[in-house]
Design a protein around this nucleic acid. Structure first.
Length: 273
DNA sequence: CCTGAAACCTGTCTGC
DNA sequence: TGCAGACAGGTTTCAG
């Protein structure tokens, strides 16, 4: 569920509330949530750690502690919530950090995750988790030329390649469908068939749609990610049968790489020689 | 190397 | 109303 803009939104939302606080203790309610280390070791080592900063790499949220990093991946249904006053865990809470701020106020940072796919790593070697990620799409290392060259190093369907976090880190199902539509590229087109001009358009589409998502505080489908409103501006995602905003033809849905995929059949055509 | 399927989970919605 | 089946924003692993 959360893709780069939603994770960025959550990072910004919790930053002001937790930075400067100290972790008093931790509860692990669903042990598999903790990818590493063991629950016992985690509880010992996390105690007393001060939260120095909150950041993000791709879809990972990072709590920078004094001696460790806490890496959090929300996967499909994860969320982070800061609560004050409450003691009883909410339904679907999987891991809770109990915090004390500089001025002595108590709060908790809860990792809530209905589907239990989310994972948390507590480590002093974040590169072991983050090392294989591709470039950040909003950083300057990601250029049109880089995209063109790397698309041509592969011969893969465009959509699964863009979803591959080792290729480019941060896009998920919604934003990939949106940017392929903006760039007028078909999700099944082969990566090495993309022209320089198309690569440039795709690069521009990726950056603009991610920035738009962040500006709108992400997308809130169903009950998740309260606050965001990017879902009201989808061009193709979740719009099967509705008109393409560009040409008016009905949006079609089919499956690509096991993911629901939305295209305009007129705007997004595979060119073949 | 590339693709597709299955697995990990719970909740919601659809159709019979 | 009940129930089976499909589907959901992600990632890993395995078979062909």
């Amino acid at each position: 569920m959360p893709e780069l803009p939603e994770v960025e939104t959550i990072a910004r939302a919790i930053e002001t509330e937790v930075v400067g606080g100290t972790i008093v203790s931790a509860d692990v309610l669903w042990p598999r949530t903790l990818a590493a280390p063991s629950v016992k070791k985690f509880k010992e080592l996390v105690k007393g750690q001060k939260i120095k900063a909150v950041s993000r790499r791709a879809k990972y949220l990072i709590l920078v502690l004094e001696d460790y990093n806490l890496l959090i991946h929300l996967r499909m249904s994860g969320d982070l919530i800061v609560r004050t006053g409450k003691i009883k865990p909410e339904k679907h809470d999987r891991l809770i950090l109990f915090l004390r701020s500089k001025n002595g106020r108590e709060s908790q940072l809860a990792f809530n995750d209905t589907r239990k796919f989310g994972r948390v790593w507590f480590t002093d070697q974040p590169e072991t988790v983050l090392g294989k990620l591709g470039p950040e799409p909003l950083e300057k290392e990601f250029t049109p030329q880089w995209l063109f060259e790397n698309l041509h190093k592969k011969k893969r369907q465009l959509k699964p390649l863009l979803l591959d976090q080792a290729f480019l880190a941060g896009l998920g199902n919604i934003y990939t469908d949106e940017c392929l539509h903006i760039a007028k590229l078909h999700p099944l087109a082969l990566s090495n068939s993309v022209s320089q001009k198309q690569a440039k358009a795709l690069h521009e589409a990726i950056q603009s749609v991610l920035k738009e998502g962040i500006r709108r505080n992400g997308a809130s489908i169903d009950w998740v990610y309260r606050g965001g409103d990017f879902q009201n501006y989808f061009r193709v995602y979740d719009r099967e049968g509705k008109p393409c905003p560009v040409c008016g033809i009905e949006i079609q849905k089919f499956t690509v790489g096991q993911r629901g995929t939305h295209v305009c059949p007129k705007c997004q055509v595979i060119e073949r020689k």
